[in-house]
Write a protein that binds this DNA or RNA. Structure first.
Lengths: 112, 112
DNA sequence: CAAACATTCAACCTTTTGGTTGAATAATAC
DNA sequence: GTATTATTCAACCAAAAGGTTGAATGTTTG
């Protein structure tokens, strides 16, 4: 699996996106992360492992506690891949613009 | 499933990302899309349906042929979600910058 | 040392995913 | 009107995903 595959797959789950969002505030332990979710700690632990596997999260062990922090690199990769298409959607807007211009042209013709 | 879930999940598969990439060139039929892939036409047809379900692709039927074209909206949604974290990764770079500045400061101290 | 805590591991279950093959449907071409 | 072409539908399969529970592993605390 490519790193882009892993990043997109990791971010496809809403629980994991919420985890990512919460980690922008700073480091949190697995238990802290699990607290607001209506699922077992084990389930959250698994989600964290998926994020870790995608490189989105880094783990720092301190005694029995594991502190997680966000790694931005995979998010940048996703942003980079996606932004290829900015060109495309601007182009579509341009095409719409050209179409509207054409319409206006025709309106002018009609009024002559 | 939220539209963001669907978009991320759809883009997590490399075959589907390749399909998206090819569709920036313009409309293609299912058969055209399937041609370069080492899998059955049926498999590609399924992938197209996933992309369609995520709103990334729109289908136009013309006789027995189905023409697919790219819809940019979900890509924009993904870009928008991801760009929230631009702030975050710039901040990390800033933190690195501050760290390096601090190092330099200490170097100066040492040289006094 | 014993109890409590933070976390993972392992086994299990159900649903989804990504692929296959074979048949159905519908439009086109000869 | 019979092939051929474009596509989907349906059934099936293996593997992965997302969850559960229960036990194991370490670490901290009393």
């Amino acid at each position: 699996m490519s790193s882009l595959d892993l990043a997109f797959a990791a971010l496809a789950d809403p629980t994991r996106r919420r985890i990512v969002a919460r980690l922008t505030r700073g480091e949190l332990r697995v238990t802290d992360l699990a607290q607001p979710f209506a699922m077992s700690l084990n389930a959250v632990s698994k989600h964290v492992k998926v994020l870790e596997g995608a490189g989105l999260v880094r783990r720092r062990r301190e005694g029995r506690e594991h502190y997680l922090r966000l790694r931005a690199a995979p998010l940048r990769e996703v942003a980079r891949w996606t932004s290829q298409y900015e060109r495309f959607w601007n182009q579509r807007l341009d095409a719409l613009g050209a179409f509207l211009d054409k319409q206006t042209e025709n309106d002018d013709e009609g009024s002559q």
